[in-house]
């Protein structure tokens, strides 16, 4: 049996259903992500797992025990909030030791644990500070330490990086991953950022409107979207109509066909391409965006508009608006999607 099993879990607020019949399992030590646009029910699902919201139906099993009706304070589940939720009246040390204090362990006995935790989140020397004296990243590390010190069975992370700026987010992301691997901690992470989800997760549960629409490892979710929603959420997929697909690639499909922006090539004269990169089409550049290491071109091909990502090698190779070019498609990576 899996470490965590969710069985037909449903939650509604009055008339409004937040999620219905959610089912999944998580193995011990796994890092899974609930990914989805805001309002898809991912945060409420996380809160229901934590026991902060009551489920209307269904069961939650952890390590062979049904905890559906266990109160939050007895679930032994740790959680890190987007807002940090540090206790502003307490020092870093007291914040981290709070969980132990609730267990009746005095600060003196907890000293070793406390030092270990402070070292783990690299906050040594800050134990006497108050939360308002710390930066956002430091605060979130205190919150992490506070959740970890009681040795939770599951760690829940509710968009813990969303309030931080890019550089700190990157560092903390790695730090969370390192700690998670080191402690072999079963972790459920909630985010609306697909890039973050792909970078961090062993498995992703992609949610939309209270349902899990696709689950799997990041590679599969990215390269094999099951429907239009996944395709448009996971990357900047080009979705072309079934008729165009038939006409261009001789692909028979009832639904739209997805092409990733990086599986389209702009043909360089004199370069040899593999056999599966073919189906040349003439296109016109409508506009381009510089994304740093990638340039994204918006193109017009017959009646379809396409996005193509190219590596940004040098500014001389930047093609101006209105240029006519020839496209090639990686035929192995073109696939129909469900609705």
């Amino acid at each position: 049996m899996s470490y965590v099993t969710i069985n037909k879990l449903s939650k509604c607020f009055g008339e409004v259903t937040v999620f219905e019949d959610i089912e999944f399992t998580i193995e011990e030590g796994e890092f899974v992500t609930l990914l989805g646009p805001s309002g898809c029910g991912k945060s409420t699902l996380l809160r229901t797992l934590a026991g902060l919201d009551k489920a209307n139906k269904g069961e939650i099993w952890v390590d062979g025990v049904d905890i559906t009706h266990t109160q939050a304070q007895h679930r032994e589940i740790g959680m890190v909030f987007q807002s940090y939720a540090l206790f502003p009246n307490m020092t870093v040390e007291d914040n981290i030791a709070f969980g132990l204090k609730m267990k009746g362990i005095s600060k003196k006995d907890a000293k070793e644990d406390l030092q270990k935790m402070l070292a783990l989140v690299e906050l040594g020397g800050k134990e006497k500070c108050h939360p308002h004296e710390l930066s956002g990243g430091q605060r979130q590390r205190v919150a992490l330490a506070r959740a970890l010190i009681v040795k939770p069975r599951i760690l829940l992370l509710d968009e813990p990086l969303s309030a931080l700026d890019a550089k700190i987010r990157k560092n903390l992301r790695q730090q969370i991953l390192d700690i998670q691997k080191e402690l072999n901690l079963t972790t459920i992470f909630v985010t609306h950022d697909q890039e973050e989800a792909m970078l961090m997760s062993d498995r992703i549960f992609l949610m939309n409107q209270g349902e899990i629409v696709q689950q799997g490892n990041p590679e599969d979710i990215y390269t094999k979207p099951v429907n239009e929603f996944v395709a448009s959420f996971m990357g900047n997929y080009n979705l072309i109509s079934a008729e165009t697909a038939k006409h261009w690639f001789n692909i028979n499909s009832n639904n739209k066909v997805a092409i990733r922006p990086e599986s389209i090539y702009i043909k360089d004269a004199g370069r040899q391409y593999a056999d599966h990169i073919s189906s040349p089409k003439l296109a016109k550049i409508i506009s381009h965006q510089l994304l740093g290491n990638v340039i994204r071109y918006n193109l017009k091909v017959e009646n379809e508009e396409l996005t193509v990502d190219l590596l940004n090698r040098s500014s001389e190779r930047l093609m101006p608006k209105g240029s006519s070019i020839e496209l090639l498609f990686n035929l192995n990576e073109i696939q129909p999607v469900g609705v």
């Binding site: 809160r47 902060l52 304070q73 007895h74 909030f81 206790f87 709070f98 969980g99």
Partner: peptide, 20 residues
């Protein structure tokens, strides 16, 4: 969030109110 955090760390609502 403060009460939720206190709950998850094992505090009852009364304790959370008094301590946090």
């Amino acid at each position: 969030d403060l009460i939720d955090a206190a709950h998850l760390l094992g505090a009852s609502t009364t304790k959370a109110f008094l301590l946090v």
